Simulated scan of single mutants.
Amino acid sequence: MALSLADHWVWDHWIADDGEQYHLFFLRASRALHDPDRRHWRAGLGHAVSDDARTWRLMPDALVHSDGPAFDDQAIWTGSTIIKPDGSLRVFYTGISRAEGGMVQRIGWADSDDGTVFHRTCSSPLEADPRWYKKAGEDAPDEHWRDPFVFAHEGRWHMLITAQATGVERKRSGVIGHAVSDDLETWEVLEPLTQPGGFGQLEVAQSRCIEGRHLLVFSCGQDMQAEPGPGGVWLAEGDSPLGPWDVASARYVRLEHLYAGQLLRLRQGQWVFTGFDDGIGQTPFVGSVPDPIPWERIELMSR
């Protein structure tokens, strides 16, 4: 295993390259909780570094929950990491709070000048805009607004977000939310980049371009699919880094034991696929990160 911890479960993760070393950020929670389903409410953000994206050296955790009251005083959830123009690192992440029982998700960020110690620099978290996105209480107790994936395109910063469209049945309401910024500090929430369809959530999404093909990578478990079937990690093709993507014709990755799939371009140019081992059909929950898999070995399947 590339990363397996005896005392912690490891699940959603992402990798950033600062040009000298790879940074792995991952959700982690103590196995002392005994029940892996409890891990979501106790998650912190672990950090490791590597020269080859395969052999990892553990670093101090990047983030744990804030002292309350705060939007992130219960747990830290998935996000992404960018190298800022000045060379420092910024982690975008999802936070949930005790005041709302973890039911409302918001987005914040933290910076590091040395690649080790991260300080929160978000003055006000980014929230779902009810003009387009479902808020808690519409037809469910929770509010989906998580997994920020940030990248630069045509002179602006763009954020893709796991969200749900307002006024749509829960298991068909999943959309890619969208926000933009010119300075990484002030963000404007815009209408979604996809239409609702057969998925209740498009989790941990990425926009990647491989050999001229614009791909949207996202995950959705069977419990949030309008028509449950095989596959948890999905790829849809589009026309640009901002879509539109043909989500209705998305194909799934034939590695059903992996979830929260991510694509990464290594320094030498090779694309690889990673996702955490959720051990579908296995007891107990595995909770580990395998070695990256060369993209050319990935088989895509249609329903």
Rank of each mutant, 00 (worst) to 15 (best):
G212V: 02
K84S: 11
D182C: 10
E191N: 06
K134P: 01
T186C: 09
D223T: 13
G200I: 00
G174D: 04
W145C: 12
W234T: 00
V117A: 15
L33K: 05
T78W: 03
F92D: 05
Y133H: 10
L264W: 11
A110K: 05
D142L: 12
E185N: 11
D37K: 13
C209W: 03
V104P: 04
E237N: 03
G197D: 00
R265W: 09
D37M: 13
A236R: 03
E299D: 09
W109E: 00
D113R: 14
G229E: 03
A110C: 05
F118N: 05
E191M: 06
H178Y: 12
S97I: 05
A236C: 10
G229L: 09
Q268A: 14
Q195N: 14
A110F: 05
T186Q: 13
K135T: 14
Q262D: 00
H65Y: 08
G102F: 02
L33D: 05
G155I: 06
D139R: 08
I176Y: 02
T116I: 15
L126A: 06
A165R: 03
W187V: 07
S302V: 12
Y252D: 03
I96E: 00
D12M: 10
E256M: 14
F199Q: 09
H178P: 02
Q206C: 03
D111S: 13
V117M: 14
H257V: 13
V272P: 05
C220Y: 10
W41A: 15
W41K: 14
P148F: 00
V233F: 03
P148W: 03
A62N: 04
G167S: 10
V217S: 08
G243S: 07
V49M: 08
S207L: 02
P228K: 06
F199I: 08
P230G: 06
F151E: 01
H8D: 15
V253I: 13
G200D: 06
F149I: 01
R57M: 13
W109I: 00
W77I: 08
S88Q: 13
L263G: 05
S123Y: 11
Q270V: 13
A163S: 14
E100G: 13
R265H: 07
R297P: 02
M103G: 11
G198N: 14
R251L: 10
G137A: 05
F92V: 03
H153P: 02
F151Y: 04
G79H: 03
Y259Q: 03
